[in-house]
């Protein structure tokens, strides 16, 4: 019998183990009760098994989120590995829900699990998609808002990867600013 080469039967390991979370906006429950872990994975094959199995963001109800975070990091500002960090935030128009939301989210997931930001991938904590009536949002969270080089690498490569028009500016906000903002807008520490 011809022995199968490992390539044929060994799953492809990812650099990190990841956890996918789902947030459903149930007003009768507390915020943390509404946040549920769906599943964890650490191979390419297991990622696809999960991804192919769940709803696309455009099919979720308003107020729902998906969060993909490195295992051990909770998808909230307060987590020790998030609290000193921030996020690249992309806000989408209402029309983009049908044309762009799902493919941007998939591309974001592939960037994370594929470690697509070279050395800067170390700084990535996770990514969140928020489905909202006024416009959906996708963000990539990093762990230290002072690591400008890594943050700029991530922002520039992410913008290129989604081939966003140059005039579409992405802003990076620290979680500290976002959580303590007085007005409706949070100032950007960086932008690309």
């Amino acid at each position: 019998p011809v022995a199968a080469s490992p390539e044929q039967y060994i799953k492809h390991p990812l650099q990190n183990r990841w956890a996918l979370w789902y947030f459903k906006n149930d007003k009768s429950k507390s915020w943390t009760e509404n946040l549920r872990l769906i599943s964890k994975f650490d191979t390419v094959e297991d990622f696809w098994a999960l991804y192919n199995h769940i709803q696309q963001p455009s099919k979720l109800g308003f107020g729902c989120d998906y969060c993909l975070f490195k295992d051990g990091i909770k998808p909230m500002w307060e987590d020790d590995r998030n609290k000193l960090g921030g996020r690249w935030l992309m806000t989408l128009s209402k029309q983009q829900r049908h044309n762009d939301l799902d493919r941007y989210w998939m591309e974001t997931l592939l960037c994370l699990i594929g470690e697509s930001f070279d050395e800067a991938s170390e700084d990535v904590c996770g990514a969140v998609v928020n489905v909202r009536p006024k416009g959906d949002k996708i963000s990539i969270w990093t762990g230290n808002c002072q690591n400008k080089d890594a943050i700029m690498t991530i922002g520039q490569q992410y913008k290129e990867r989604l081939n966003l028009p140059i005039k579409n500016i992405l802003g990076y906000q620290s979680h500290d600013d976002t959580s303590s903002k007085s007005g409706s807008t949070t100032k950007n520490m960086y932008s690309v």
Partner: peptide
């Protein structure tokens, strides 16, 4: 060394069912 995968490589596995 780091396990990095580009999108083309990852996409090849989306619909390959793992026959374990």
């Amino acid at each position: 060394e780091k396990k990095r995968y580009d999108r083309e490589f990852l996409l090849r596995f989306q619909f390959i069912s793992v026959s374990m």
